[in-house]
């Protein structure tokens, strides 16, 4: 039994596996299938200042080895999250990462101030949602705006601040450096890649939003590359995600430099994916006689 625990920004995780924001809601539906305490942490559904209905349907489409989604940050708003969902989540013996998003810098600051007063363990600032017209990825695609929003939210909270980065940029390492210099404690990546599918019979895009975020196994090699580039560019811990669907994928992303791993689309295919990934990582580490998962973080030997 290998030691799977990791520590990110002073927060202890019993293992490095975290369901990614958006796929897991607030955990209630998955708790019917397995105890949430098995998870290293949970990144909660992106919370905005007020309730959002999101984009019109269809919001999802199958793609080769992956999927597109355009949910558009549907959520009940920060007050509902804090009053109704958070108290329940905080009893689950797992790290709670509150994912937050806003149309403006001020909104993000207000949400962060509210969460700062709660017992949430970490904040994940989403500057990379490709599915909303205002804010979202717009904050995350230039160094200056990424740095600015990070600096403002940094002032609003003492909690460990993770900034979630967009892969839809020229140099994700430059964006990572910008948010690090603005006070981010960690970065998480990659959010989805902007994509599109068209039904050739109707000539209509499958998604009502026309475009959406690509995730799933198809994006995994991009995630590995970007995590590796970012881990080499910054000193703060990197949380990796993007198409992880097995224990071996998670090991690979950690070798590229991730200190923890989020799991998204794989949960749609197999709702038990996070739990299976934890077991598979443990088996692999045991088979290699590696005592702690921490030994493999950034252990890739590049040519």
């Amino acid at each position: 039994m290998a030691d799977l625990s990791v520590n990110i920004c002073g927060v202890d995780f019993k293992n490095p596996i975290i369901p990614a924001s958006g796929v897991f809601g607030y955990g209630r539906e998955y708790e019917e299938l397995f105890p949430l305490s098995k998870l290293g942490g949970i990144a909660t559904k992106g919370t905005t200042i007020t309730r959002r209905n999101g984009n019109p349907s269809p919001r999802i489409a199958e793609t080769p080895s992956g999927m597109l989604n355009s949910v558009g940050l549907q959520n009940p708003g920060i007050d509902y999250f804090i009053e109704t969902e958070l108290p329940n989540l905080l009893t689950k013996d797992t790290v709670i990462i509150a994912n937050i998003a806003g149309s403006t810098v001020e909104e993000c600051v207000t949400i962060a101030e509210k969460i700062d007063k709660t017992d949430v363990h970490m904040i994940e600032l989403n500057i990379s949602c490709p599915n909303v017209k205002q804010g979202g990825a717009a904050f995350g695609t230039s160094c200056a705006s990424a740095e600015n929003i990070t600096a403002e939210v940094r002032k609003a909270t003492e909690k460990p601040l993770i900034v979630k980065l967009s892969p839809n940029v020229t140099s994700i390492a430059d964006i990572a450096k910008a948010v690090e210099s603005a006070g981010a404690d960690s970065v998480s990546l990659i959010n989805t890649l902007l994509g599109m599918r068209i039904d050739i019979n109707t000539q209509r895009p499958i998604l009502k939003n026309n475009v959406g975020g690509l995730s799933g196994s198809a994006v995994f090699p991009i995630a590995v590359r970007m995590v590796w580039q970012v881990a080499n560019a910054v000193k703060i811990p990197v949380i990796g995600m993007g198409g992880v669907s097995s224990g071996k994928d998670a090991i690979e992303l950690m070798m590229a430099g991730a200190s923890a791993v989020q799991v998204g689309a794989a949960i749609f295919t197999d709702p038990f994916a996070p739990v299976k990934i934890i077991d598979e990582m443990n088996e692999w580490l045991d088979s290699k006689n590696i005592k702690s998962v921490r030994e493999i973080i950034g252990s890739v030997k590049p040519w």
């Binding site: 958006g22 796929v23 897991f24 809601g25 955990g27 209630r28 539906e29 998955y30 019917e32 559904k45 209905n53 999101g54 019109p56 349907s57 269809p58 919001r59 999802i60 489409a61 999927m67 989604n69 949910v71 549907q74 959520n75 499958i206 949960i267 749609f268 709702p271």
Partner: peptide
């Protein structure tokens, strides 16, 4: 019927427009 993700109510993909207390609700 709607294109669906998780199937259990977590991912909020399969939205349909409804009325709840006279307010539009997905």
């Amino acid at each position: 019927e709607e294109r669906m993700g998780c199937g259990i109510g977590a991912c909020l993909v399969c939205a349909c427009r409804t009325k709840k207390n006279d307010e539009e609700y997905f």
